[in-house]
Write a protein that binds this DNA or RNA. Structure first.
Length: 107
DNA sequence: TCCATGACAGTTT
DNA sequence: AAAACTGCCATGG
């Protein structure tokens, strides 16, 4: 799989995240690992930083529910507008965690 | 080609 | 419970 397609797959998955829900970078990487065979949370993060400009990146947070550095304010505002379960300035992962349809592991 | 860096995660101290 | 350390894989210099 070429890097470009990998990026495309990540963006596609992020776009599929329904409003009010979020996914951790690790979850995205894991879901993608089944198709690409290789993935790491860092990669997803890097990809989002470089190509995340056209997708709801605010629906992707790190495992701690922490918002991306430099965009915390914006992400917080958007998440709150979408009804995402927020715990202070973080996302309530336990309640907002989402997995893509077709992924049997969490089902 | 090798070294350093990065919207992260999981484990151990 | 919080902080620090190590592991991950691809990209940039």
């Amino acid at each position: 799989m070429t890097p470009d397609e990998y990026v495309e797959a990540v963006l596609a998955l992020v776009e599929r995240i329904p409003p009010g829900r979020v996914m951790s970078y690790g979850a995205v990487a894991d879901a993608l690992a089944e198709r690409s065979g290789r993935a790491s949370p860092r990669l997803v993060g890097s990809i989002m930083a470089r190509h995340g400009g056209g997708v709801p990146w605010h629906r992707v947070v790190n495992a701690a529910g922490r918002l991306p550095p430099g965009h915390e304010r914006e992400a917080r505002a958007r998440l709150r507008a979408e009804g995402t379960p927020l715990r202070g300035d973080k996302v309530d992962i336990a309640a907002a965690n989402w997995s893509p349809p077709g992924d049997d592991r969490t089902r």
